[in-house]
Write a protein that binds this DNA or RNA. Structure first.
Lengths: 124, 124
DNA sequence: ACCCTACACTGGACATTGTCTAAGTCAAGT
DNA sequence: ACTTGACTTAGACAATGTCCAGTGTAGGGT
């Protein structure tokens, strides 16, 4: 555990939002001015491997990092402003895929992204 | 309808697979050698706007384009080789999101990606 | 037929995101 | 103190996508 890794972990834990790698880097720099992008990427990658943090890809621009890794959840994304909310749908989407639709795959995971317009954007 | 757009449409229609923009461009070049990347991107964007083609983002590298836009379906992706299959889960995932989990959003769409290991990779 | 205009296309520069590498730094063990 | 190895840094590089200025080109109006 180095100062750099601690700072990255603190940034993620401090704000329960979904930050991009560059946003994490920007916030980390305010606490540890000389931390490099490579270290942030490396550390985020390690946190993902350890299962402490989830990678989320709600748009096709940058990956985002979700510190809420220990509660299974899905995401609801505003198509206009990109806001992201964690949501908890009823049921288990994995159960909705019958064997006949698995083509011999060993299916281990499912990722659900709801898209819509948030109240802010709808009223604007 | 120009020669360039026809070629892009033919490439997508010809092979029912999920091509990246660059793969579309590579195939288009064999038929129309001087077609530019920008035109392929523009044309793909227009096809997406028209609803003729879907953008799929199964990995974080390149967007892929799915000509099967008129049959709602989801995707099953191999975590090792990246192979993509169209699948049709039972039920409607949109119905699984209760009002209490919508936070005032107008939810219009849902995207489901199953992940697993395909038979080929599992036996290797 | 000839110009004019609007649109599409081209090629390349640019932006964003992420990965890689060579070299530097630091701490622990010998 | 020296060696070793892990970590960090800075920057080059790669992949993908977007933008823009200049160049066709097709069709309408004369």
């Amino acid at each position: 555990m180095t100062a750099q890794r601690r700072v990255v972990a603190e940034v993620l834990d401090g704000e329960h939002v979904h930050l991009t790698a560059d946003e994490v880097h920007a916030r980390a720099v305010t606490r540890l001015p000389e931390i490099s992008r490579a270290t942030v990427y490396n550390t985020l990658g390690e946190l993902v491997t350890l299962g402490e943090v989830l990678e989320v890809s709600t748009d096709r621009r940058a990956k985002r990092y979700d510190p809420n890794a220990h509660h299974p959840h899905q995401h609801l994304v505003c198509a206009r402003c990109g806001a992201i909310r964690d949501v908890h749908p009823a049921g288990n989407p994995l159960a909705d895929l019958p064997d006949s639709e698995r083509f011999g795959f060993t299916v281990s995971d499912v990722e659900v992204t709801y898209r819509g317009v948030c109240p802010n954007c709808a009223s604007a």
